[in-house]
Simulated scan of single mutants.
Amino acid sequence: MRVLAGCVAAAIWVGGVAPAAGAVEVPEADLAYHGAAAMSEGRVDVRFTPRNHGPSAVPDASVRLRWSEPLANRQVLPAGCARAGARALLCRVGGLAADEVGEAVELRVRLRGVPSEVLLEIDTVWSGGVVDRNRANDRQRVLVLDTGDAYYF
C-alpha cells in the first residue's frame, strides 16, 4: 500500500512541475475575425479582417464560411477561396505573426433564390498546428437581412 501511495505522490509531483519526457509543447495563438456582411437580392457581400492576438505566430490559417441558405451553383470567388459544399466556402487567411492584423478578405456570393435573411457562420478550420484555446472570437455568427445594410461581427 505504501509503495502505491508513493507512486501516486510521485506522479502528481512530476505532473505538476514539468512536462513528461518527450512531450511536445504546442504553440498557442488567439485568432479573431471581425467584419461586416450585407445582402441585397440574393447577393451577399462579406468583408472581414483576421487578427492574431498571440502569443505565438500562426504559420497559415483558413476559415470556413457557412450560410443557412444554399449558394448558387456558379460563383466567382477570390483567389484563396474554394467551394466546400452546397452552403460553404473555405478561404485561406495565410500566416499571421503574433499581435498582427492580416489582409482583409472580401468576397461576394450569390445565393440560390432571394431569401429575406441568411445566417452566416465563420470559424477557423486550419491554424497550422497552433492551438487556439479562446474559440469565442474565431467563431462568428451574424444574421444578415435583405436590406442592403451592413451587419457587423
Rank of each mutant, 00 (worst) to 15 (best):
A61N: 00
L96K: 01
V24L: 15
A136H: 02
D99L: 05
G85L: 10
R64F: 09
V58R: 04
D146H: 08
H34D: 11
V131C: 01
E121S: 13
A88E: 10
T147K: 12
L90C: 08
R51I: 06
V114M: 07
Y151V: 13
R112E: 14
D149N: 12
E41I: 05
E25K: 07
A11E: 09
L31N: 00
E117A: 14
N134I: 04
V17G: 06
V114A: 08
G22W: 05
P55L: 04
S62G: 13
V109G: 05
A98T: 01
A72S: 10
N73M: 15
A150Y: 10
A82W: 09
I12E: 06
E121M: 09
G85K: 04
N73T: 13
G129C: 06
L71G: 01
G95F: 09
A37V: 03
S40E: 15
E100N: 05
V24G: 02
L119D: 12
A57V: 00
V44A: 08
A21S: 11
P59G: 07
V118Q: 11
R110F: 11
G129M: 08
L71H: 01
V46K: 01
G128L: 09
G6Q: 13
D45K: 14
A61R: 00
D30M: 00
G35D: 08
L77P: 03
L71R: 06
D60R: 08
D146E: 08
A5L: 14
R74H: 12
A84G: 03
A150K: 15
L89C: 02
P19C: 11
F153V: 00
A37T: 03
N134E: 10
G128A: 11
L111K: 02
Y151N: 04
A104T: 15
V17L: 14
R51C: 03
W126Y: 14
A29D: 03
Y33N: 00
G102K: 04
P59C: 07
A98N: 03
G15C: 14
G15I: 03
V76L: 14
I12D: 02
A37L: 06
E69S: 13
L120W: 04
P59S: 11
A29P: 01
R92P: 02
R47H: 08
R108K: 13
V131H: 02
P59M: 13
I122N: 01
L96C: 01
R47I: 15
A9E: 08
E28F: 01
R51H: 07
D30C: 00
Q75F: 14
A82S: 14
N134T: 06
D45F: 15
A9F: 05
A97D: 05
R2G: 09
R110C: 05
E103N: 10
A88K: 02
L4W: 14
T49P: 02
D99C: 02
A37H: 06
D138E: 09
P50D: 07
E121F: 09
G113E: 08
Q140T: 06
A136M: 13
A37K: 02
A11G: 09
D99F: 04
Q75E: 13
P55W: 15
G80H: 12
L4K: 05
R51K: 10
V76D: 13
V17C: 09
D123R: 08
A32R: 02
A72V: 13
A84T: 06
A32K: 01
A9N: 05
V125A: 01
R51M: 05
G148V: 07
D99W: 03
